[in-house]
């Protein structure tokens, strides 16, 4: 019977961990011992068998399955990727962001009382009054103040950051509009800009 130590040497050899000295011992023993030679060959064959089955592939939809089961992606990443893959979208979003920023800041900055200049308008403590029986021609715009209509406005009346009071005798021929929220403000801004553009186009 061969010493167990020889079997150990075989395993070390298979692990690539046999120093040359010990390898010499193993080789010499194998040359003289048929039994150990058989074991050694069987071990090498076993390793080859096990290695031969090592080429399996995951199912085709594996990655998609995993990704579908992940917790939801953070919005920041998602938007970032969207913008990366659609440069026009990112240009547009930058434009919109700047536009919004400037609009909102003008909304917040513009705290001063102002009124469009027209004949017959009376101003009293941040309140603009259209006196009884008087007629104001053209559109009236009041910022950061109230509008009291007792007479007649031949045109539109717009109150930004304020309230309008329409007396029973008061009359406005055009539209009456109150703008009190940022969104109203933006909407108003967009409308007047479009109107101006349309106007310019029309006059051409």
């Amino acid at each position: 019977m061969c010493p167990d130590q020889i079997i150990e040497l075989m395993h070390d050899y298979l692990d690539d961990e046999l120093d040359p000295k010990k390898e010499q011992i193993l080789r010499e023993h194998l040359q003289s011992c048929k039994e150990c030679q058989t074991i050694f060959n069987e071990l090498k064959k076993t390793v080859a068998f096990v290695q031969s089955i090592s080429h399996m592939q995951a199912p085709a939809d594996f990655t998609a399955q995993v990704l579908a089961k992940l917790p939801k992606e953070k919005k920041k990443i998602w938007i970032g990727r969207l913008l990366k893959s659609h440069p026009i979208l990112s240009a547009a979003s930058v434009f919109v962001a700047l536009m919004l920023g400037s609009l909102v800041s003008t909304w917040n900055q513009d705290q001063e009382f102002s009124v469009s200049k027209q004949k017959n308008l009376v101003v009293k403590d941040n309140t603009v009054i259209v006196p009884k029986g008087k007629v104001v021609k053209g559109d009236v715009i009041v910022r950061n103040g109230d509008l009291k209509i007792e007479g007649e406005i031949q045109g539109d009346a717009t109150v930004i950051h304020g309230k309008k009071y329409l007396a029973s005798a008061g009359h406005v021929t055009g539209d009456i509009e109150e703008v009190n929220e940022v969104f109203d403000w933006m909407w108003y801004h967009m409308k007047t800009t479009t109107k101006k553009v349309v106007h310019v186009l029309d006059s051409e």
């Binding site: 090592s54 399996m56 990704l67 992606e73 990727r81």
Partner: peptide, 20 residues
């Protein structure tokens, strides 16, 4: 940072080994 697509690349790279 929470990027799913980057993780998709990782899965592709190791899916066969891990499945096997």
């Amino acid at each position: 940072k929470g990027d799913h697509d980057a993780f998709g690349d990782i899965v592709e790279l190791y899916k066969n080994s891990i499945f096997q």
